[in-house]
Write a protein that binds this DNA or RNA. Structure first.
Lengths: 219, 219
DNA sequence: TTAAAAAACAGGAATTATCCTATTTCATAA
DNA sequence: TTATGAAATAGGATAATTCCTGTTTTTTAA
């Protein structure tokens, strides 16, 4: 009994996406339903009457990233299994993807047989965790014991706070930032205080360092 | 007269590499000779008796990156045309690749027809430059002129100033920094003022951003 | 040795950032 | 409707930063 399973691919790099589709095309029992360049595009193409079994999901994308899309799927179609695609250098991103509901992850430098294995494990037992990556993630998790609050706090930052942080990583004064966000200076000061407490920091420079370290702002 | 052209692929992401190979396999007139995960691997597989016409080269790789490998090719087999693969957010990397001898570049989110066009242009006229990317690169080139003064200012920082900058990228107050450097607070303030003027910045956060951007401090 | 330049240091003012403790507004679940 | 909690807003105090305009000390070069 080998009924065909359906796969969707979400990645903003066309060459990668199409290449992957071309590879999966030769898998027996698997068929690429469609591919999308962003989470938004993916949701637009999704047909509730005929859902994919597996979604190969990249993390960084314009419009709607892998985190948001995975979370959306968890809330709307929890039976669709998300397999996160990532690179080794994005450990915290992997952790975040799992929290968002990804059922497994494969590295972009995995080989074809591993992808196949990941597929069949996803179908068979519902999840797939590569040993090497798991160990890496565990390592960074235990390594982050001190940073644990930092990490979970990072997850708990809301939109306003993230916007504020980005603006704070500049030479703008809080007064200017308040204007730019259409909020009072006191509200901005409240954001600052909340963030300082959440992230356990005590100065704007510390905030800037944190933001860069965690990719909230790019240098 | 359509004689077959040979292509090699160098990229450390196996899925991307194999996917790309699978895509190119359907191009008429092009054939993937081999693929490699690093520059070192590529050179090891290279047969001087039968060189590829085109090398699709990623930039970031372990062991030997795209820059070094492209330069090596320029010095050893200048007739082999390197087509750089990159993402939009790596402008300076693209410029560096061109300086290393790449004959063209395509973005990873290009589509198949553009890749095909790049191939044929490489064969026909010897180079390929995508308009959008070209414009981006030109932009960042002119921007580099502005950064030049910034850069030379960076060179003119003395030991004390560099020490101060490193300490300033923290939650320490200037008072604490003064103690740590065995200088008076006023001397520290003088360092700060000089640095602000030299680097044309106006706040400690700006200084921290500069320091990270230029590798004075690591995140 | 001496003049010039560079480095260290200072007083004081203005601005910004930080840190308290409240109150008001608003959506939303009971 | 009302209770509840989160988000926004405030006043006011203190600390830190930024920005002036100087003087003193040390180094360097003629």
């Amino acid at each position: 009994m080998s009924d065909t399973k359906y796969v969707a691919i979400v990645d903003d790099h066309t060459l990668f996406r199409k290449g992957l589709a071309s590879l999966i095309a030769v898998f027996p029992d698997y068929k690429v339903m469609f591919d999308a360049s962003t989470g938004k595009d993916f949701i637009a193409q999704l047909n509730p009457k005929k859902l994919p079994d597996i979604v190969l999901m990249d993390i960084s994308m314009p419009e709607m990233d892998g985190f948001a899309t995975t979370e959306w799927l968890k809330n709307n179609y929890p039976d669709v299994k998300v397999l996160a695609l990532s690179t080794m250098d994005a450990e915290t991103a992997i952790i975040k993807m799992i929290k968002c509901g990804a059922k497994g992850y494969v590295l972009k430098d995995a080989d074809l047989s591993e992808l196949k294995l990941a597929f069949s494990e996803l179908i068979r037992v519902g999840f797939y965790y590569n040993d090497i990556v798991s160990r890496k993630v565990m390592q960074s998790l235990t390594q982050l014991v001190d940073d644990k609050s930092e990490l979970s706090a990072f997850m708990n930052l809301n939109e306003n706070e993230l916007t504020f942080i980005k603006l704070a990583c500049s030479e703008k004064t809080y007064q200017q930032i308040a204007k730019e966000m259409f909020k009072s200076e006191k509200t901005i000061d409240g954001y600052r205080a909340d963030i300082f407490q959440k992230l356990n920091i005590s100065s704007r420079v510390g905030l800037a360092m944190f933001a860069i370290k965690h990719g909230i702002v790019k240098v």
